[in-house]
């Protein structure tokens, strides 16, 4: 490295803007090179005179106070305005954080909407005959029911799952008893099989195909006569 190439480093060293290995190397070069040492001395002198020449002039007392008073007066006004502004928003939430919270809320709302839309679309996937479902309050209902013939009341009114409930995802759908269509029930749950899903055939034997239990006896699920929550099922094809 020639001395011309050291010049930049010598300059930076004179301003104390060099560190690490470069600084050590430059200092060791300065010890051996008188011309670079002279350059370094010149830069130092110039640096000092520039610092002196560009240093702020001492201000008169009244001038200092003038600026200080003016800034102070404006700041105190700002404090009052700031207090009003802060009163309207939750404490500790900066602008960035508010934006983030807003975005998060928007994402949550969108996610919720998506989930509801998916839930609405799940019914056909599980084969639910939604056209026969009529809303009736007071009965819990859970799980998809494949073919007709089972009572959809998987939960009793106290909220406890019935022992013969069909396991499955719980959906928020109209609550009904759907009883009837013995053929379908027979097809799905052969007699004596003790299948875990659906209710067993009514002991009264009143479930004629296509008629349901409406007006014929106590509902085996809720005991009401007649059961206003039961609906007729279409005849099995």
């Amino acid at each position: 490295m020639t001395c011309t190439r050291w010049e930049h480093n010598v300059f930076l060293l004179s301003h104390g803007q060099m560190g690490g290995l470069k600084r050590i190397a430059t200092e060791s070069h300065l010890q051996t090179c008188p011309s670079c040492r002279a350059r370094w001395a010149r830069w130092v002198v110039e640096r000092d005179s520039l610092r002196k020449g560009l240093a702020p002039l001492p201000q008169a007392g009244w001038e200092e106070n003038r600026l200080l008073d003016a800034v102070g007066a404006r700041i105190r006004t700002e404090v009052r305005e700031g207090a009003h502004r802060r009163a309207g928003r939750p404490a500790g939430l900066g602008r960035d954080r508010r934006v983030r919270v807003g975005l998060l809320a928007a994402v949550c709302v969108l996610f919720g909407m998506g989930i509801s839309a998916l839930a609405a679309n799940w019914a056909p996937l599980f084969g639910r005959p939604t056209e026969y479902v009529s809303g009736a309050p007071g009965h819990g209902m859970a799980g998809p029911v494949g073919l007709g013939g089972e009572c959809l009341q998987m939960l009793d009114p106290s909220g406890v799952t019935a022992p013969n409930a069909i396991p499955g995802p719980r959906l928020s759908l109209p609550r009904v008893h759907r009883i009837g269509n013995g053929a379908a029930r027979e097809r799905r749950h052969p007699a004596g099989s003790g299948s875990p899903g659906g209710h067993r055939p009514s002991p009264t034997g009143t479930s004629a195909p296509g008629t349901g239990l409406r007006g014929r006896g106590p509902c085996p699920m809720c005991g009401a006569i007649p059961c206003t929550n039961s609906v007729a099922q279409p005849p099995a094809k």
Binding site: P56, L67, V71
Partner: peptide, 19 residues
């Protein structure tokens, strides 16, 4: 919100800043 602390900062930097 300490205005006096900010006054001290103004006092410290006003000369350099105005220059």
């Amino acid at each position: 919100g300490d205005v006096r602390a900010f006054d001290a900062l103004v006092y410290r930097y006003q000369s350099r800043l105005s220059q």
